[in-house]
Each structure stands twice: as structure tokens, then as C-alpha cells.
């Protein structure tokens, strides 16, 4: 399994770099899959399975470290714009975000969550909370 990309702001201890089978909530109840890669999103981490499905960390069942989330202000302009370009090209390619557990569904979900937090925070200017 490819390890999680390093981030200076957060240091999750799991998963280990060994191949790992995860159980997660799915529409039909629970499902399992082999993790190929763990990738940071704009808000949370996504677990990419060997069959191509994309599972957000908070849907994973079992005893493990609680999910690590990123603050909107930790996302750089370059990262945001790259994400936006990727979404537009997936839409232009005719992908459907309603296909669950597929990359477009996962990336659009994170982008909308991030956009909501980004602009809600900018309007209300709450104190910077602890994220741990």
C-alpha cells in the first residue's frame, strides 16, 4: 500500500504502510476492500481501494485512530485550483457524481464541504478552534 502523503499540519498514525483490508459503511450495509493508497482531500482523507472505489475516512468501521481533518485555511491556492480543474475535466468527460464510491463523487463531495466551510468561516470569522 502506498503511504499517506506527508502534511506538515497533521500527522495521522494510521494506517500502517502494510497492505490493509478495511470494512466500511456502504449503501447495502457494510463492505470490505483492500487499500491501495490513502490520499489527502480538501477536508478529510480518502482511502483508494484496489478496485478503484474511494472511501472517505469517516466511513471506515472498526477501532482505529479518529479521522484527521484539515482546516480550509491550510489549503493553498494552487491545491484548490488544481482540485477545481480536475472536477471540471471530470464533468466535461461525462462522469456522473451520482456514481457512489467513484472518484468524481468523492472529489465533488469534498469540494462542496470545503467550499461551505471556507465561506461560512470567512463570513462569521469564528475563533480558530483546536482541530485535535
Amino acid at each position: 500500500m502506498r503511504p499517506t502523503e506527508k502534511r506538515p499540519d497533521v500527522h495521522p498514525k494510521w494506517p500502517s504502510e502494510e497492505a490493509q483490508i478495511i470494512t466500511f459503511t456502504s449503501r447495502g450495509g457494510s463492505a470490505t476492500g483492500v487499500v491501495k493508497e490513502v490520499r489527502w482531500g480538501l477536508v478529510w482523507r480518502d482511502f483508494i481501494l484496489e478496485d478503484g472505489r474511494v472511501i472517505p475516512e469517516h466511513k471506515i468501521l472498526g477501532e482505529h485512530e479518529s479521522p484527521v481533518w484539515r482546516k480550509p485555511q491550510d489549503i493553498s491556492q494552487d491545491e484548490r485550483e488544481a482540485w477545481e480543474r480536475r472536477l471540471v475535466s471530470m464533468a466535461d468527460a461525462g462522469l456522473d457524481p451520482r456514481d457512489e464510491e467513484q472518484p468524481f463523487h468523492a472529489e465533488l463531495n469534498q469540494y462542496l464541504a470545503y467550499t461551505y466551510l471556507r465561506f461560512k468561516e470567512a463570513r462569521h470569522k469564528p475563533p480558530d478552534p483546536k482541530w485535535t
Binding site: 479518529s66 479521522p67 481533518w69 451520482r98 457512489e100 463523487h105 465533488l108 461551505y116 466551510l117 461560512k120
Partner: peptide, 22 residues
């Protein structure tokens, strides 16, 4: 609430943690 819980509540209330397909 911790920051994570607060964000979780915000996103849950807005229906953005797991957006239904439709």
C-alpha cells in the same frame, strides 16, 4: 466541542458529510 466535532456538526447539518446521490 473540539474543532473537529464542530466542523462535523456544521457539515452534518448542511448535509455535506455524505451527499445523497440525488
Amino acid at each position: 466541542q473540539s474543532g473537529k466535532q464542530q466542523v462535523w456538526s456544521l457539515l452534518s447539518e448542511a448535509g455535506l458529510v455524505d451527499i445523497p446521490t440525488d
